[in-house]
Design a protein around this nucleic acid. Structure first.
Lengths: 160, 160
DNA sequence: CGCTATTAGTTTCAAACGCAACTAATTGGC
DNA sequence: GCCAATTAGTTGCGTTTGAAACTAATAGCG
């Protein structure tokens, strides 16, 4: 009775896709609480605000691309932010299909308040991890992300 | 006019919670395709099957804890798996509130088919990354996960 | 014992999600 | 210049989600 040389086992808690989802979930949940409690904003809305705060005016398409969000999610987040007076919409005269979204003064103030909270959260989260290790971590993370993008295919399906 | 010493900027694409969500999303999407296309199973169902494959019979509560799933998600995944004949349910005579869930022979076969696919996916995903770096990556990931669990609070709220 | 608190699991319900279809505008070939 | 193809963005719709309420059973405490 020979034993099979390698029937490799799977342990979910060590399985990378699972682990990455779990850690991402924890991060979202913690951040969502901060944004929600202080500003009544959810994660999709935060992503929009963050991109606008960083890049100034953008079209919805750009936001979706930069923030990895489905276009319907962008559309809804922008609508809600606009209704709260945090972003404004200005039709592009050169191409009236699209519109430039930008933070209003009120939106800019919210952004300015959230940024330090977000950075503090990240700082607290990574506190005490050796800078060197963190660097390796981020490099590997970048590799996995880039490859993952490939393996998953974007929102837009590739040719069949 | 003195410049403020440090008004640190936030760049979403370098913001860890965001990056972890994105990479987790890619992984889920890619895996979901594999499970879905080959076995008609989604990610929550896969998590249940994976835990049962690893640990044998478990209660729904155990599954939720092990796989970090909300109890309603477990409930629905188990119901669907049961209806497809992939898991069975056996009331615990010692405590009739709970039931032991286990893979049926058909479920075991599916599990045995998925495991190599999952492992191959992970192997392909991490291919070419130095073992040393991967080790660092996983260690930091474990730290972040553990801290994230704290920062996020579990499903069950802590005392107010 | 008897009654309240707790726990396992399900169901209900409203919100969020994303695909597909749609509208409106622009582009590109011919 | 006109018509088909493409693109930006929204809306309709069925599915998934999780919080809260609920059911059924057990545990704990008097």
């Amino acid at each position: 009775m020979s034993t099979k040389p390698s029937e490799p086992a799977l342990h979910l808690e060590q399985f990378l896709p699972y682990r990455l989802n779990v850690v991402g979930f924890f991060a979202s949940r913690a951040l969502g609480r901060i944004y929600g409690a202080h500003f009544g904003i959810d994660i999709p809305q935060w992503r929009v605000v963050a991109q606008l705060g960083e890049f100034g005016k953008l079209t919805s398409r750009d936001i979706g691309e930069l923030a990895q969000m489905h276009k319907t999610k962008v559309s809804r987040a922008v609508r809600e932010l606009e209704s709260r007076g945090l972003v404004s919409r200005a039709e592009n005269r050169q191409d009236r299909r699209e519109a430039f979204i930008a933070l209003t003064p009120a939106g800019t103030r919210v952004y300015a308040q959230i940024v330090p909270l977000a950075l503090a959260f990240q700082a607290r989260w990574t506190e005490g991890i050796a800078a060197e290790e963190l660097k390796v971590f981020e490099r590997v993370l970048a590799t996995l992300t880039e490859r993952g993008r490939h393996l998953a295919g974007g929102y837009r399906e590739e040719e069949a």
